[in-house]
Amino acid sequence: MVMFKRFLCVVCFSFISFFAFSIDFAYGLAAGQMYRVVGLVEETVSVGGQSYFARVLNKSSISVEKAEGNRVFCKAVYVTAEEFSGLSLSVFNKQEDSVSEYWIDRLGNMEIDDSYRYPIVRNVPLFPGRELEAGDVWSASGYEVHYFDELGIKEPFKFPVNVSYIYVGPVSVDGNVLHRFDAEYPVFYRRKAEVSSPDAPVEIRGYSRQEHYWDVERGMDMFYREEFYFALVLNNGAVFEFDGKANAKVVWASPLDKAAVVDAVEKDIDRLDVPDASVESTEEGVKITLDNIRFPPDSAVLLPSEQDKLKKIAEILRKYPDRDLKIAGHTALAGTAEGRQKLSIERARAVAEFLLSLGVRSPEQMLIEGYGATRPVASNATEEGRKKNRRVEIIILEN
């Protein structure tokens, strides 16, 4: 499925002067800071006279590693997930994760190798380095970099954009004063070099219109909205159209005290008498493992006993409402690899949708992933081992 995922480089900023809403915007990241950006893309994709609607969840976790002069070095993990439609609820099925490293200076200029897939939109926003008052405008150059693995294309499709900005001024949002500026750019780009693959993109046209909202007192970007349309022309003449909207917000969270959470969850598992459950600290966060989670053969329908177990787990998860969850499904070694993979995703989805029905999280706070039988924790030669491998993991994520 070909999609425009719309990862922008959203970071916090500080201001140098503030008087009568005259502001000199500048990025103000400091070493040791960590934050994440959660975004949702809703788009209609059209090709060959057929259209489909897609919802894509984008999450990025950014860590500022060090500062050097007027710039900082960042490491980021980007996760994308597509909506997985169920009978009454929807969860997002994780598609990929990717790591990036880049430098960014006070005005927003990035130094990043094109081999990194994200962020897709770069040098946007880019600040002018002077004080701005409501109504002031400026322009700057940015660019976008897209990968189209779905088409079998390995090299990136990179094109420049000339962005027009306007500082709209202060606005009141939920009783808080934020500062809005808009960014807009048209796109018309045609590759000059010849490409050999018939599926390679050679031309793109369209536009992006963005609204950004900044909290000056806290020195951070609260959220942005985007409307976009792009028509992508392939070398074989096929045209993909993407018509949609996106939004994202920045979330700051204190580090997860994994040791304390593990201890508290262990006590809750004992208190609630949750069978076949264990908890441990991992790099991702705190993982609750449910061994031998039972379904009818080759089915993803939760048995009543498992629903009772998950109701107890839900009580535990409600204690950490600000932390996102990942639900991972695993199977024993039976059937085909394709069948095991499909079943593990469906069972993770069943658990996620049941937790959603209990109001544990919103769909945007939960991802599912299936591993089939690729990550066994015991031998599949014995029934006891297979019980351990038929498991679902619920990870309370660090960031």
Rank of each mutant, 00 (worst) to 15 (best):
I293Q: 08
Q50W: 12
L232N: 04
Q210T: 04
L356Y: 08
L367Q: 03
A253M: 12
F242T: 03
R318K: 15
Y189W: 12
S139Y: 10
R55W: 07
I368V: 13
E150H: 11
L343P: 03
A54Y: 05
E43I: 02
I396W: 14
I204E: 02
A140T: 02
F148T: 01
Y35Q: 05
I368S: 04
S357G: 09
M220K: 14
V187Q: 06
K326V: 10
N380P: 01
R347N: 01
Q50Y: 13
P201E: 09
N389K: 13
V360M: 11
S379W: 06
T80D: 10
E65Q: 14
L355E: 04
G32D: 00
F21H: 11
S172E: 13
Y185T: 00
V274W: 11
I153R: 13
Q33P: 05
V121G: 02
F7M: 15
E101M: 11
S344L: 09
A337D: 10
E211Y: 14
L367H: 07
V10P: 00
Y371G: 00
G49I: 09
K312Y: 10
E283Q: 11
K245Y: 02
V91Y: 07
A337R: 12
N380Y: 13
E101V: 07
G385I: 08
G219C: 08
K245A: 08
D136N: 10
I327V: 14
K158D: 00
R349V: 05
A348R: 11
L8S: 12
A334Q: 12
A253K: 15
E203I: 00
L303S: 01
G32Y: 15
F127Y: 11
L317Q: 05
V145M: 13
E346L: 10
F18A: 07
A259D: 12
L343H: 05
K192G: 11
E266K: 15
I394H: 11
C74T: 06
S197A: 12
